[in-house]
Design a protein around this nucleic acid. Structure first.
Lengths: 235, 235
DNA sequence: ACGGTTTGTAACGGCGTGTAACGGCGCTTG
DNA sequence: CAAGCGCCGTTACACGCCGTTACAAACCGT
């Protein structure tokens, strides 16, 4: 779903709050408690942005920042507890993309993350971002443009249809629980008697299944959830 | 003498303190109390960076920022009294280079000024690279001339149509909220029951969509805003 | 086959969005 | 300066989306 943010922070309470905030805002968040843990997580999968605390056990935030700058071009936002430190960090020219002082306004933090991602995005991809497309069965799904085609016919998708399909496309051949679907599409968690996912699914099936009474694309997995049961080819 | 900073701030006390600080740090500082005074000073001699307060008598800081961004590439740091405003300003994408909340740590302010000057210094020269003409689908849009063509046919645009389209062109494949659209086109913020954006969009769609009842270029994203859903090629 | 549980979906209604229509304002023109 | 015109903000209403509810159908253990 969202872009991957890596939070490097040794205070569990703060990292918990921040990662919850980020997930709520549509990012995916991982936490590392020190430089070594960060390296391990980056080896597993890359991050789109790193939120880096200054004070850390072991290797210092400044050192980590310099190191990251040296090899990759991952955007970095430095976080520091004492606002007096900020001018020092900036002065040191470690090359972070932005700087935030604790305690920070959550919405400001999110806004600064978005601003940095926006600013650095054109550098990575060409400014005229081409749209991502995938194929499955005889469909072509233009993810960025929110458009779905079967053959040459366009199938109109509501925002709800799109959210659901986009989630499935990214996770084919895997059972997704109602809780996961709820979280990934609406950003809120699923409560016991909530049927909105089922109804949304029924509506999506009506548009994309050849025979909605015998679903072939989106299978029901009883007592578990739903699964996008076809292969997805990147274009 | 150091680089020329222009402080746009109506509070005499603050502007006095800031300009003293800047001079002490080796910059040259001038003060303007509002947008008109700023224009006069810029006409006399250019500035290397503008420190722009959000709340000003007469023309608003956001409006000034947009105006400055439109013609030149002078680095701008926005200053605001309420830290809650910061996330909104950043979210609005007025395009400032940094944002600082009052009351600020003087050394942090200086550090941020230096950081912005450092970052923007090399970018100044090759700024005039891109042509001001873009293509999308089978349209050619001449941004400077305010003219839009589909194939060889010209499509007449009102200034309202143009403003909206120009904003979208610069931010393809991104959902823009009504608040952002309002601010970027009209320079004022969006209030809950204001439908003028919706109507303006409807009028633009009527001119550029093949089938305005099934919008393909400008998608509605329910509960969020609108998105220009096509790729834009620079000419 | 029976009863309880889970899933499918039609129907309803609240609310967000599309857009026709009206009218004020500023600009052009004679 | 009056008349005409086009632009655009407001209003009002129609329509579509989606969360909820209710009931039917499918499923499963016994």
């Amino acid at each position: 779903m969202g872009q991957a943010i890596l939070v490097v922070e040794d205070d569990r309470e703060i990292s918990g709050l921040v990662s919850a905030l980020l997930v709520r805002e549509g990012f995916s968040a991982r936490v590392a408690e020190n430089g070594a843990a960060m390296d391990r997580l980056l080896a597993e999968s890359p991050a789109d942005l790193i939120l880096l605390d200054l004070m850390l056990p072991g290797e210092d935030g400044l050192s980590i920042c310099r190191r990251l700058r040296a090899d990759g071009a991952i955007p970095i936002i430095m976080v520091t507890a004492k606002s007096d430190d900020i001018d020092r960090i900036i002065g040191l020219e470690v090359g972070a993309d932005d700087y935030v002082a604790k305690p920070f306004n959550p919405r400001e933090l999110v806004a600064r993350i978005r601003a940095v991602l926006r600013r650095t995005a054109p550098a990575a991809a060409p400014a005229t971002a081409s749209s991502r497309r995938v194929r499955f069965e005889d469909f072509v799904f233009d993810i960025d443009a929110h458009r779905l085609f079967r053959g040459t016919e366009e199938i109109a998708l509501s925002t709800g249809d799109y959210d659901l399909l986009a989630v499935f496309i990214e996770r084919p051949m895997r059972v997704l629980t109602r809780d996961q679907l709820m979280d990934l599409t609406k950003g809120r968690s699923w409560e016991a008697f909530d049927r909105s996912i089922d109804v949304a699914l029924s509506r999506l099936r009506r548009k994309i299944e050849a025979d909605p009474t015998k679903p072939a694309l989106i299978k029901t997995v009883r007592n578990a959830g739903y699964m996008f049961a076809t292969t997805v080819r990147k274009d």
